[in-house]
Structures are given as C-alpha cells and as structure tokens.
Amino acid sequence: MKIYGTLFIILLLGIGSFVGFSNPPRNQEPVQNTTQAFNTMMKVVTHKRCMNCHPNGDRPRQGEDSHIHNFNVQRGDDGHGTAALKCSTCHQKANNDNSGVPGAPHWHLAPISMAWEGLSDAEIARRIIDTKFNGDRSIEEIEKHMTEDDLVLWAFDPGVNNEGIPREKPPVSEKDYIQAVKEWIAGGAQIPEQ
C-alpha cells in the first residue's frame, strides 16, 4: 500500500491518453455464472461508505447524504490531504467514538483514476480490474485489496457519527461481500452487460 500514492501520480501523468477500457481482464472460460456475485459485490462498492472516498474530483464526500466534505477538505498531492490539513489531521487508524470521526489505517482518498462517482456498475468494475486504472494491480492483488484491506473493510464497521448515531452499513454483510468478491474473481471477473 505504501507505493500506492506514487503509482497514482504516474497514472495521473498518463491518464489523459487512455480512452475507456484498454486492458481486458483475463480471458478465461467462465467456471460459473457470477452475475449474482457481481451484483452482491457492487451493492457494497457503490454504497456511500465506499463511494464517498471515490469521488470524481478533488473533494471527498461524507455523510449519509454524500455531501461534499466540510471545511474545504481536498485531495492534495497524494490523496492524503493538503500540507496542514491532511486526512490524518482528523482521521486516525480507528473509529473514534468520542468525536465521531471515522478512522482506519491509511485513511485517504482513492486516486482520481479510481473515481467511481457517476459511473455505472460495469464501468466501475472495469476500472477495478484494469491495471491502467487500479494502480497496476494484478487480479490477485485486487482480490487481496478488496477482501483484506482495512480501509476497504472499514465499510462494515463504520462507527458512529458526531451525534453518536451509527453510520449506515452496506446492505450486504462483510462475509457475503468477501465471498462474492472471491467468487466473482474466481469466475473470471466477468462484467455482466447491463
């Protein structure tokens, strides 16, 4: 994860030349129909707990209504905020029940290449598996990222807000989500036509 930021900068430099989807997933015979797994996975991916930090711009979103993050918070050079207003100025490595500030290890904004806001499920999924967008991650690395990364899995333990009210969780359990991701990838990471 440490090299994530660097990769993102490289990606940014080259991103203008990409048009759409240029690196198809492994072309293997589907072992089963994974549409259901895909849909289950996407219910999580497109939930505000994930989407709020995959914005299509330099401002994170927050809250159940996905409003633009308060206090003019911005992406910064590396997705970790600006010099004196970093994500870690407020967000630590775990949720804070006193302040209601959410937290998880390496809390930061997804790189702009992984902006999901405004995309269809299929478009998001293509970005997830496309090395030109996903930080040059192999499909194995993607599986690990999506099923083991603390920041990704934070969505299932999102803590309480500033009034002590629990944040809404994705409509799928952590276990079902992980299973769906694995099943989808094992099935060849097929992206159903919509």
Binding site: N70, F71, A84, L85, K86, S88, T89, C90, Q92, A94, N96, N98, S99, G100, V101, N162
Partner: peptide
C-alpha cells in the same frame, strides 16, 4: 469533534486535532 481546529497541536511535526486523537 475535530470540526473547529481549536485543539490543533503537532504530533511528530504534523498538525493534528487532539480532541479526536486517542
């Protein structure tokens, strides 16, 4: 609530809002 910044101090040289820092 880490909203106003009145509690800002430095942790290893970085600005941190100490009300939300265990």
């Amino acid at each position: 609530k880490a909203a106003c910044g009145a509690c800002t101090l430095h942790v290893n040289g970085e600005a941190v809002r100490s009300c939300s820092f265990p």
